[in-house]
């Protein structure tokens, strides 16, 4: 199972990953057009700055998901096959509990449409858009290491 990894020392904070993420989830997939879309596509990844380093952050799809247990509407589930946390937009009530409990601040509230946004690893593509876009190759798309026994 592949996951996103970050070589944070290589992150120069240009936020190209944020732009490419928003673009990949937009209707048009074209920058100037995407900015005009009514249901504005927002980035699901954020670059945070702390203690002089830059940290790109996106949903880790954790094995023990605080967000799934916090979801009162049962809109969040974890798919064992893909290892991903899935979000059912129809069940979501927009309470932002998932946003609050996420230890990585990786879930972003889209206040306009009242839906939380999280990285879906660009599900139908061979490689997440941010990996392709990163100009310093600070984002890796690699197999998860086997858990230590």
């Amino acid at each position: 199972m592949k996951n996103l990894y970050y070589v944070f020392k290589k992150c120069v904070g240009c936020k190209t990953c944020e732009l490419s993420c928003a673009l990949a989830h937009s209707q048009s997939g074209e920058l100037s057009e995407a900015l005009k879309e009514i249901k504005l596509s927002l980035p699901r990844t954020t670059v945070f700055a702390a203690t002089g380093e830059n940290y790109p952050v996106s949903c880790r799809h954790c094995k023990e998901q605080k967000c799934v247990s916090a979801c009162m509407a049962k809109a969040l589930t974890r798919d064992a096959a893909t290892g991903m946390v899935l979000h059912d937009e129809n069940r979501c009530v927009g309470c932002w509990m998932c946003v609050m409990v996420c230890p990585y601040a990786a879930i972003r509230p889209n206040r306009k449409i009242k839906l939380p946004l999280r990285c879906d690893r660009c599900k139908d593509k061979d490689q997440p858009a941010c990996v392709k876009a990163c100009p310093t190759r600070a984002i890796l798309w690699e197999e998860e290491p086997e858990p230590k026994k």
Binding site: V12, G13, C14, K15, A49, N54
Partner: peptide, 22 residues
């Protein structure tokens, strides 16, 4: 924050329409 590293380092060029380049 974080401020873009390419801008900070001076290695982003948008002087022509071949780019912008970094």
């Amino acid at each position: 924050e974080p401020h873009c590293g390419f801008g900070t380092l001076g290695i982003c060029c948008k002087n022509c329409n071949l780019g912008p380049c970094r």
